[in-house]
Amino acid sequence: MSDMATAVWSALADPSRRAILDRLLHGPRPVGDLARECGLSQPGASKHLRVLREAGLVDVQRDAQRRLYAIRPAPMAELDAWLAPYRRLWNARLDALGDRLDAQATDDRKGDPS
Rank of each mutant, 00 (worst) to 15 (best):
R53W: 03
A103H: 10
G44F: 02
D107I: 09
R23C: 14
A64T: 12
A45H: 00
S41E: 08
G44M: 06
Y69R: 01
R93V: 08
G27N: 01
R109S: 13
M76P: 02
L57D: 02
H48G: 09
W90F: 14
R67G: 13
L40M: 05
R36L: 15
E78C: 11
S16V: 06
A70W: 04
L101T: 01
S41Y: 02
A70F: 05
D59Y: 08
L68P: 03
S46R: 12
Q61E: 15
N91K: 14
A45Y: 00
W82G: 05
P15I: 07
K47T: 09
R72I: 00
C38E: 05
A55E: 04
L40P: 03
V51W: 07
Y86C: 08
A96P: 03
R93F: 08
A92L: 15
L94D: 07
L89C: 13
A84H: 07
Y69M: 06
W82C: 05
P43G: 13
G111P: 03
L21V: 05
R50Q: 11
A81Y: 06
V60M: 11
G44T: 13
G111E: 15
A92W: 13
A96W: 11
L89R: 14
D80Q: 14
S46K: 12
Q42H: 06
G32Y: 04
V58W: 00
L68Q: 11
R23V: 02
A45W: 00
D33M: 07
R23P: 02
G98E: 08
S16C: 05
C38S: 05
R50H: 11
D95H: 13
D33A: 09
